[in-house]
């Protein structure tokens, strides 16, 4: 089995800087990363690539669906993918997330993000 650190992570975040920062943290930790600025882009990428193991998504995003809907959709269509949902809002509850989803409050540090992904894998 491959090291989890080489797993491919999809980061979905509309705020470019926060997205960049997340990409930076993950590549620094050895992950391979693809990114999307909204849920529609994320779905398009997921439909093309079969090797994504983890999706890290923000909740509040413009577009046809927010991060919670995206997580639910991924859980239905690609059940093996691990899900990390992040938000600045403190009131996201485990029951709002799909079964394998984890919540990570914002702002997060690199080690916290990496920890969350390792736990989800």
């Amino acid at each position: 089995m491959k090291s989890p650190f080489s797993a491919l992570v999809l980061v979905v975040e509309d705020e470019p800087l926060v997205r960049l920062d997340a990409i930076d943290m993950l590549t620094g930790a050895g992950f391979r990363v693809v990114d999307a600025a909204n849920a529609d882009e994320a779905i398009a990428i997921l439909e093309q690539r079969r090797d994504i193991r983890v999706v890290v998504t923000d909740i509040q995003m413009p577009g046809s669906m927010d991060g919670l809907k995206l997580a639910a959709t991924i859980h239905d269509r690609w059940p093996p993918i691990a899900l990390i949902v992040t938000s600045g809002q403190a009131w996201v509850q485990q029951r709002d997330l799909p079964e394998r989803g984890r919540f990570l409050p914002k702002p997060y540090s690199g080690p916290r993000l990496v920890e969350a992904i390792q736990a989800a894998l």
């Binding site: 705020e15 800087l17 920062d21 930076d24 943290m25 509040q60 600045g88 914002k106 702002p107």
Partner: peptide, 21 residues
């Protein structure tokens, strides 16, 4: 307002860590 404040913190945190590059 809460949401915007949280976003600003996330943004500030990203600005600092990316500025370190």
């Amino acid at each position: 307002m809460n949401h915007r404040i949280k976003n600003l913190f996330a943004l500030a945190s990203s600005i600092i860590s990316l500025s370190a590059r």
